[in-house]
Structures are given as structure tokens and as C-alpha cells.
Computed example of a mutant assay.
Amino acid sequence: MEPLSLFFAAWLVGLTGGVHCFGMCGGIVGAVTLGLPAMPGSMLQGRLAYLLAYNGGRIASYVSAGMLAGGVGAWAAHLMAVHRAQLALQVLAGLFMVLLGLYIGGWWRVLGRLEEAGGRLWRRIEPLGRRWLPVRTPAQAFGVGLVWGWLPCGLVYSVLVWAIGSGGAVQGGLLLLSFGLGTLPVLLAMGTVAAALAGFLRRPWVRYTAGALIAAFGGHKVWVAVAAA
């Protein structure tokens, strides 16, 4: 099982990257909640049900991808010299953690290129989500979330690299679950609450602190793997 610090790092990436996620998914969230049918109870409760369904589908896709990445990594390690393969994957994951920390802190935007690379796959997947629009039921919102969970995102791709070196499908799934839960506060918040939270997460000291912590986790992971080689 991965140490709790790595799950915390994945959650922190999701939380501090929530503003980035809102920028990419905000329009989709609007499409999910715009023109909802009349429902019993308050409008806020009705919208929350749809938002929870959408984000549940999105996180389910993250977890599926994490389990796949973790399983592939474990399978590849068994095909090679297991010990050395695991150490190599841990070094790779640690390096991506450092890059992600630099990205979160705003010091180096190199991971943005991953989103450009993922755009090719997204062009094939995106039309599937249109079948669920306009959204009329929470089940349809869940379906939209399942598709849009594959939206090209450098943050998601980086955590998937961690999952490859996590040691198994369960660990990989839990890493992506931690990341997905971290993105929830901004994407579930509405109106002035969302604006206030996004404003807080945009503060330089918040980004710098989170970026430094994540980069430090990555550096430690690399150091442990190299020392064990």
C-alpha cells in the first residue's frame, strides 16, 4: 500500500488544481445544471444532486484510469526484474511529482504540453458525451461525468504516472480517488462560495506552498528509490 503522504499529495494536487479544473470543466458543469427540470425541494438541492452525479461519474473515470495504470505498471514490473523495475517506476513517479509541484507553483508550465498530446484521443471520446445532453436526469449527469473524466488534463496525466509506479491496481485507483476528491470543493461550490474559494487557491503563497510540498514529496520519493538501488 502506498504511504499516506502520497495520497495526501494527490489530494493536494486536486485541491490546488481545482481552479484549473473549474476553468476546464466549468462550462460542462453549466451545461449539466442549465435548464434543469422542475424538481421537488429547493433549487439548490436539485442542482446539488446533478452536480454530485456529474462529479461522481468524473471521479469514477479517474479511478478506472488509475486502476488501469497501476495494473499495467505492476504487470510490467513482473515481466522484468521486479525490484529494479519497481525502483525505476518510483523514480519516474517522483520526477513527475517534482514537475507537477513546479506546475502547481507556477514556476514551470511544461506539463501543459501533455494536455495538447491528449487532445487527439479526446476528439474521439468527446462526441460520446453529447448523447447525454441536454441533461434531464442525474443518471444522464453521471454519464456526462464518465465521458468528461477523460478530458485532457496535465494534472490527471501526472497523477496517472504516479499510479503506474504505485504497485498495483488498487493503489492506483486510490491515488486517483484522492485526486478526484481534492477537486470537489471548487466544482461543487456555487456562486460567491466558488469565487471566494477560487480566489483563495489563486493566492501566490497558497500555490507556492502546495507546489513546494508536492515537489518535496517527489524529491523524497526519488531519493528513497535511488538509495534502495
Rank of each mutant, 00 (worst) to 15 (best):
G66E: 02
G66K: 03
L95K: 05
R113V: 12
L68D: 04
A38P: 11
A76V: 07
L100C: 05
A117I: 14
M80T: 04
L79A: 02
L121T: 10
A117S: 09
R109Q: 12
A81Y: 00
G149N: 02
V63L: 08
R123A: 12
V91N: 07
M43W: 15
V147Y: 02
L34Q: 14
A60Y: 02
P138I: 04
R120S: 14
A141G: 03
G66M: 06
N55T: 07
R84A: 09
E126W: 09
L36K: 11
A31L: 14
G149W: 06
L89C: 11
R120I: 13
A76W: 03
L114E: 07
E115M: 07
Q90T: 14
P127L: 08
L111E: 12
G73R: 00
G57D: 01
L121G: 09
L133P: 14
H83W: 07
A49M: 10
H78Q: 15
R123Y: 10
G56R: 08
M97I: 06
Q90H: 14
P138S: 05
W107N: 08
L146Y: 05
R123K: 13
G119K: 00
L128N: 03
L92C: 14
L111G: 08
L133W: 13
V72M: 15
G149C: 04
Y50V: 01
V91D: 07
G119F: 12
L100G: 01
A76G: 13
I104E: 02
A49S: 12
R109G: 09
V98N: 06
G56T: 08
A88V: 06
L52V: 09
V82R: 03
P138Q: 03
A74F: 13
L99V: 04
R113E: 11
L79W: 03
F142Q: 02
A49K: 07
L51I: 05
A65T: 04
G106M: 01
L79Y: 00
V147N: 04
A60R: 03
A31V: 13
Y103F: 15
G119E: 09
V98P: 01
R131D: 08
F96Q: 05
G101N: 02
I59P: 03
M43P: 15
M39E: 13
Y62K: 02
A141T: 07
G129V: 09
V32Q: 02
A76E: 07
G70S: 03
W75A: 10
A53K: 03
L36V: 07
W148P: 00
G106N: 11
A93T: 01
G105F: 05
P40H: 07
G145W: 12
G56L: 13
G119T: 01
A31Q: 11
M97Q: 10
G94D: 00
P134I: 00
S61C: 11
G105R: 01
P40S: 13
L34P: 09
L36M: 04
Y103G: 03
P127G: 08
R131T: 12
L36T: 08
Q86T: 04
V72W: 12
L36H: 01
G57A: 08
R58F: 15
G70Q: 11
A77N: 00
G35F: 10
A65V: 01
E116A: 15
L79F: 00
G106H: 10
L114P: 03
W132D: 11
V144W: 06
G56A: 12
E116D: 12
I104R: 05
G35L: 00
